[in-house]
């Protein structure tokens, strides 16, 4: 399907921080940098299993860098809509129900994606988005109190990841792997490896993961 095509691996959008007692996200620069390093290594390791030519997006500066970051955020917003309104059957948008019945997947980040640095030399772009909000001590205590006392469901920690393949000519989203309960602590090398494996599970044309492939 993608044989002979070139995939542009965009710089992942990574946001790591703590979830305050009130549930607000508090960014943590040190954790984000650790996650960025670990995920970059994990992506480099996994590339050999992708049965395509994968090239890393060139370093971008100034306006080009801002555009790349904005597209990363747009990809996340589109992915969230796919999760909320296409994957979650009970919440589907009526205008898209016909799409679902016909197995049409009609989501896009728009043709402007062709202006991204490196896009001219590739056919598809691989977007990666990672959002980790680790429950603070206060949040975890609140969760325990809620479990013991009033019947209120309090979650502690949010770990969301999206990986998506986008057509660089049209901006159409061709494949998406989305998970709102991801495993692996991206602040550690092993955790990031696990996270990236999960994100790219089922990637079109990928070779079986030797660590997770069933024994014959």
């Amino acid at each position: 399907m993608l044989r002979g095509k070139t995939i542009l691996l965009l710089r992942p959008t990574i946001r790591v921080g703590a979830q305050s007692t009130g549930g607000m996200f508090e960014a943590n620069g040190t954790w984000t940098e650790e996650a960025r390093r670990n995920i970059a290594v994990a992506l480099a390791n996994v590339q050999e299993r992708l049965d395509n030519r994968v090239v890393a997006a060139p370093e971008a500066y100034g306006d080009a860098n801002r555009l790349a970051e904005e597209y990363g955020s747009l990809f996340a917003a589109v992915s969230a809509s796919v999760v909320n309104y296409q994957f979650f059957k009970g919440n589907r948008l009526p205008t898209k129900k016909r799409d679902n019945k016909a197995d049409v997947f009609d989501w896009s980040v728009g043709p402007g994606v062709a202006d991204l640095p490196g896009a001219r030399d590739a056919d598809f772009a691989l977007f990666i988005y990672d959002y980790d909000a680790y429950g603070s001590t206060g949040r975890k205590l609140l969760q325990v109190v809620a479990m013991l006392g009033p019947r209120i469901a309090i979650s502690s920690g949010v770990h969301t990841g999206y990986a998506g393949l986008v057509d660089l000519k049209t901006g159409d989203l061709l494949w998406l792997n989305a998970d709102t309960h991801m495993g692996g602590d991206v602040r550690t090398p092993d955790g990031a490896e696990k996270r990236v494996r999960e994100l790219l599970q089922g990637f079109p044309g990928s070779k079986p993961d030797p660590d997770t492939a069933p024994a014959r």
Binding site: M1, G90, P94, A153, L174, W175, H181
Partner: peptide, 27 residues
């Protein structure tokens, strides 16, 4: 390809979404 080969949404998400929106009448 225009369809989604992989769908990984956990039932917990659906349960949580319904739990936080009592009276949700649907779109």
């Amino acid at each position: 390809m225009r369809r989604l080969p992989t769908r990984r949404l956990f039932a917990a998400l659906a349960v949580a979404a319904i739990a936080i929106s009592p009276g949700h009448a649907g779109n």
